[in-house]
């Protein structure tokens, strides 16, 4: 493997709130190779979305602030770029797809215009040519009747069509990296499957890397090459998807897998829930953030924060007892 396309190193992002400073992302590091699909998995408040937003410096300041770390993309640290330079990256070499296509599209502009805009802006392609390319992109994301749909407004699209439009927009400048934050959570099950399959297909065809942010372990299993599991603002486990599912090395990951019903399971078995509540980021315990809910927690876990260490080849775990986990 050569130098990674994206290397996030010791990234921390804080938010100032009424209840004090909250570390939403705390010392997060991971690498992403060109063409690879990385899933960042976690529940609400785990820091997965803030990590994604921090990569593109989309954290509103105030109240948010990236306090430390590096985001090295293709050799340059995005956190050190000036505003002009980061804008040249956004939507161009790194594109983002959001959960709610309706609120991320401008309701008063045609979909075609919004897809053509980054092409005109970043590539200086004349508008007429950029609009033709928008129609081609809409056809590529298999929007029915793409040619005439270029002139449609977002409200004339269904949820699935809007998300196809967002994918077309993301693809417009042939980005090296697409970040998709829960791209199908608002969609129906069958449409969800269509959109994710499309996203995977177009990123593969363009050899773009994909960061897929999700809470759905099924989606991760179907689409991801590698996985980072986040909890309480930190990565607690990372590695290749197959390895993580076959040999999870963190009690939180193990707990999640036991707590979700599977379609292919014998019906009628009891689920094994993770007891307790997700952590309050403003009041994280001193040791491991998962310790209050962990069946295996020992005194060490309540006092000392476990570092993210190599547990097996290419498999990281932030558990003091990773070696004892079967």
């Amino acid at each position: 493997m050569g130098a990674p396309l994206l290397s996030v190193k010791h990234l921390s992002t804080e938010f100032r709130t009424e209840r004090g400073t909250v570390k939403a992302v705390d010392d997060v590091s991971f690498d992403l190779q060109a063409g690879e699909t990385l899933a960042i998995v976690g529940e609400s408040g785990s820091g997965k979305s803030v990590t994604a937003m921090s990569i593109l410096r989309l954290i509103p300041n105030p109240p948010g602030r990236i306090t430390s770390g590096e985001v090295v993309f293709d050799g340059q640290d995005l956190l050190k770029l000036d505003d002009h330079a980061i804008r040249a990256i956004r939507g161009n070499r790194i594109a983002m797809i959001f959960q709610e296509p309706m609120s991320s599209l401008n309701p008063s502009l045609t979909v075609g215009l919004q897809i053509a805009e980054p092409i005109n802006l970043h590539r200086k392609t004349p508008w007429a040519k950029a609009m033709d390319m928008a129609a081609e992109l809409l056809a590529r994301v298999r929007l029915p009747d793409a040619k005439s749909r270029v002139k449609s407004y977002p409200h004339q699209f269904s949820g699935g069509m809007r998300q196809r439009g967002m994918i077309a927009m993301a693809l417009a400048c042939q980005p090296q990296l697409i970040i998709a934050d829960e791209p199908t959570t608002a969609l129906d099950v069958t449409v969800q499957a269509q959109i994710l399959a499309l996203l995977k297909e177009v990123t593969r065809a363009a050899n773009s890397a994909l960061i897929l942010i999700t809470h759905d372990l099924g989606v991760v299993a179907r689409y991801a090459d590698r996985v980072c599991v986040m909890y309480g603002g930190r990565i607690v486990e990372a590695g290749p998807a197959r390895e993580i599912y076959a040999r999870p090395k963190h009690p939180y990951t193990i707990g999640l897998m036991a707590s979700i019903p599977r379609l292919d399971q014998e019906a009628g078995q009891r689920l094994v829930p993770i007891e307790g509540q997700p952590p309050n980021l403003a009041k994280l315990p001193p040791g491991c953030a998962f310790a209050p809910r962990c069946r295996r927690a020992a005194d060490l876990c309540r006092t000392e924060r476990p570092p993210l260490v190599q547990s097996a080849p290419d498999h990281l775990s932030a558990c003091h007892f990773h070696a004892q986990l079967a």
Partner: peptide, 19 residues
Amino acid sequence: AAIPIPDPDVEASRPQQII
């Protein structure tokens, strides 16, 4: 068919017929 099963090995062998 649209609902993924949380197991990469199972998913790899499942026919993916998406309507």
